[in-house]
Lab assay of single mutants.
Amino acid sequence: MATGGRRGAAAAPLLVAVAALLLGAAGHLYPGEVCPGMDIRNNLTRLHELENCSVIEGHLQILLMFKTRPEDFRDLSFPKLIMITDYLLLFRVYGLESLKDLFPNLTVIRGSRLFFNYALVIFEMVHLKELGLYNLMNITRGSVRIEKNNELCYLATIDWSRILDSVEDNYIVLNKDDNEECGDICPGTAKGKTNCPATVINGQFVERCWTHSHCQKVCPTICKSHGCTAEGLCCHSECLGNCSQPDDPTKCVACRNFYLDGRCVETCPPPYYHFQDWRCVNFSFCQDLHHKCKNSRRQGCHQYVIHNNKCIPECPSGYTMNSSNLLCTPCLGPCPKVCHLLEGEKTIDSVTSAQELRGCTVINGSLIINIRGGNNLAAELEANLGLIEEISGYLKIRRSYALVSLSFFRKLRLIRGETLEIGNYSFYALDNQNLRQLWDWSKHNLTITQGKLFFHYNPKLCLSEIHKMEEVSGTKGRQERNDIALKTNGDQASCENELLKFSYIRTSFDKI
């Protein structure tokens, strides 16, 4: 039985969820670079991206490699990797027998973001014989899940209580170790020597080791999670996991709180800001991140802002960003909400898709409305799209047979046209069989910064309504002859009103 693990408890099935942008060198404390989270699957090609990484700022997932063999891993080693800020997950990587050479110096898994409450997941690794993470000293947050690894031993010899604050939620089941077939031998045991430290858990006094050649490092209890030197002297209180010299914040392997210019500090002093819960960055760093993602459509890219001495992905609820200094300031009234469309555009074809934009005031991208039916549609669209004030790209209304009016965009005031449909149009209306009105132009103002209007096959939309939009939106004169079809717009509506004058002759039985 794995020490510190839980057996036999019912657990939810383990679901495996399925960018080499360097964020800056980590400095003297770390020998390499800070790398983003990685999802490495199918083959070993991307694994080489770990070569210079000291910190993975995010998670590391290595999974679904069915053609790899043990010899493929023999020359692979990433000794610079010290810390993973989120979680480490391995799933069905064939041929991998140990992690001792792959990650010989991995010391800390912070667990800032977890995989279903777990910071370390080893699942269905069919050839893994031992973990071998002999320098792993601290899992700051989260638990361990090690399950269905039929060859995995050296679990009962690990004292997880020396690595985690609590072992109650560890789930370590259905491994070879369960069948008591392992016969784990710690260093020196074969020669009758006791080389590794022994600890007591559940009444068992057991030597602690990761492999037959690597003991588990056990520091004096007084050192807590700070770690200790090879001689057993406690590291500085700002260290986490390990250090090369005692009581020196510049000799830590990793930091308990924050890293700044080669030393570990309790908090980031001005003019620095907390970033990702582990390091200090200056304003320029946060500003660069903001600008890199301002026009990016890459998933996970955030326009970072500053709030409460932190550089964070977005302002919290009730705050909006001051564009001059990136500071989050309290909103006066309802907060603006910028919604970034991942692929640059979004099609609204149902109430469900409209709900995804609920509360958005600025759309960074283009909207395509293609709704053919739905219950209580006008009210639903207004509830979900009615706060949109600005669209950076274009607005396209296409084959939306259920629409009679666009009044559900009740606050839309600006279409920038930074991206144009077919390279020309910022407003595009095609084949809307029941569209009769755009907006009530006596109450609604709309500016279209650039781009043209396109109207074709809107049989109940009168040309007068379209011409009014040209005047109000500032697009009059931009359109070419064929942009607004004269014969297919309003051709099934009563669009022309003329005053009919009647004269009559009164007659009676005795007068003409």
Rank of each mutant, 00 (worst) to 15 (best):
Y30S: 05
V34N: 03
P36Y: 14
T45Q: 05
H48P: 04
H48C: 04
N52L: 06
N52I: 02
E57G: 03
L60D: 01
F66H: 08
K67A: 07
T68I: 04
D75S: 10
D75R: 04
S77R: 09
K80S: 09
M83E: 12
T85Q: 10
T85C: 08
L90M: 14
L96W: 03
L99V: 08
N105S: 12
N105P: 00
N105H: 03
V108K: 02
I109S: 00
G111W: 01
N117V: 09
N117T: 03
I122T: 03
M125Q: 06
M125V: 04
V126G: 04
L131N: 01
Y134D: 11
N135K: 12
L136W: 00
N138D: 08
I139W: 00
R141H: 09
R141M: 08
G142W: 00
G142T: 00
I146W: 00
N150C: 05
E151I: 01
E151R: 05
L152Q: 06
C153F: 02
Y154N: 09
L155W: 11
L155H: 13
W160I: 02
R162W: 14
D165A: 06
V167A: 10
N170A: 09
N170G: 05
I172H: 04
V173Y: 04
K176L: 03
C186P: 14
C186N: 02
P187I: 09
G188Q: 11
G188W: 14
T189I: 12
A190P: 11
K191I: 14
G192H: 14
K193L: 04
T194A: 10
N195P: 08
C196Y: 03
V200Q: 10
N202R: 06
G203V: 07
F205K: 10
F205N: 15
C209A: 12
C209G: 03
C209R: 07
H212C: 11
K217Y: 06
V218A: 11
P220H: 05
K224G: 12
K224E: 13
C228V: 08
T229L: 12
T229E: 06
E231P: 14
E231T: 08
L233Y: 06
C234N: 02
H236Q: 02
H236P: 02
S237L: 08
C239Y: 00
C239M: 00
L240V: 07
Q245G: 15
Q245T: 05
D248N: 08
R256I: 09
V265A: 10
C268L: 01
P270N: 12
P270Q: 09
Y272V: 03
Y273W: 14
R279L: 11
C280D: 00
N282L: 09
F283R: 10
C293I: 08
N295Q: 09
S296N: 14
S296Y: 13
R297P: 09
R297T: 05
Q299E: 06
G300A: 10
H302V: 06
H302Q: 14
H302W: 12
V305H: 05
N309R: 12
C311L: 04
I312R: 15
P313S: 11
C315H: 02
P316R: 09
G318Q: 10
M321R: 06
M321P: 13
S324H: 15
N325A: 13
L326F: 14
T329P: 02
P330S: 10
C331L: 04
L332G: 13
C335S: 06
P336T: 06
